[in-house]
Amino acid sequence: MLGLARLPYGVLYVIAEGFYFLLAYVVRYRWRVVQQNLRNSFPEKSAAEIDRIGKAFYRHFAQVMVETIKLAHMSDAELKQRVNFRNPEVLERHFRAGRMALGLSSHAGNWEWVLTSGAVWLSAEVDGVYKPLSNPFFESFMHQLRTRTGAGLIPMRDTLRDMVQRRGEPRVVSLLSDQAAGPEDRPYWTTFMNQDSGFYTSADRLAARFKCPVVYVSIKRIRRGYYEIVLTELYDGNAPLPADEFPITDAFVRHLEADIRAAPEQYLWTHRRWKHKRPA
């Protein structure tokens, strides 16, 4: 994999086309899941449109694969050139005030470039909450990729303890907030992409406890190999949050839904996002 990272982008994207062909036409990786997710999310679209979006997604997914590998041999300057933060001042003003912030991102665009590019764009530390992989080799490999530009990683089970211990430090703690929450997680249930969906409520609970601002992190591919990140403040960390309501999570869902509708091929449709059902 490290050998691949040294190849020029032109060669990597040729390899990505090979991955795309294998995923979409030979292996048909989770093809039924992708088709079901797309049909349920876009009931107004024809079968031909669903097929087109599905194929475009596999091409995008293959490109994200080689771009992630490329992280092993990218300079900070190159990463900063390829991922443009349009409005970093949304976070920087909180850093200047000595505040910790939460960043809510998703499996859209190139999600693996969000944390690493944030570490080279922002003046404060960027830490990502993650679930360690069970395979030791891939856990070590992905840990090195995700931290090589200076970002930190926080195992999911240690999130609260880490935030308590470092509550006075200006930084952003990034959460991948679109993952499927099960009934045991006491999720916030809402309609997302025309389907009942349960979301983790960590953002609301942590923001209320630590009085920290929350931003939505949108990343979109503007052309092959180049992305733009736009930050939208969802909560300023000052006004009290209502108990047993989840306005931050709901705002995240609405922003993500708008991003998906604008560029559906850039979302991770192989993810079993809707595997849980709302309790009767």
Rank of each mutant, 00 (worst) to 15 (best):
A16M: 09
F95A: 04
R221G: 07
L133Q: 14
I50A: 09
A56H: 09
N110S: 13
D259W: 10
Q144F: 08
L234G: 06
T191A: 13
F61G: 02
S123G: 08
V172A: 05
K80C: 13
G3H: 01
I260M: 06
R205E: 04
S202G: 13
Y188M: 08
L256S: 05
A72S: 11
A62C: 14
Q195A: 14
R224M: 01
H276C: 00
R86S: 14
E184I: 03
N87F: 11
P132N: 03
S117L: 03
Y29M: 04
I248M: 10
S106W: 06
K131N: 04
R59P: 02
V26Y: 00
F210T: 06
V14D: 00
V172H: 03
A72N: 08
F192R: 13
Y20L: 01
E44N: 05
G109D: 04
R209M: 12
R82L: 00
R28Y: 00
T116F: 02
K55D: 03
G152T: 03
D178G: 03
S140C: 01
E89P: 01
Q266D: 13
G225Q: 10
I222L: 04
I260H: 04
E265M: 07
S46G: 14
G225I: 14
K131C: 01
N87M: 11
E125R: 15
R224K: 07
Q144E: 11
V253L: 12
P132G: 05
L241C: 11
D259I: 08
I260Q: 08
R146W: 09
I260C: 06
S197R: 12
A72V: 03
N194V: 00
D185E: 09
K277M: 05
G98Q: 09
A124R: 03
N238Y: 09
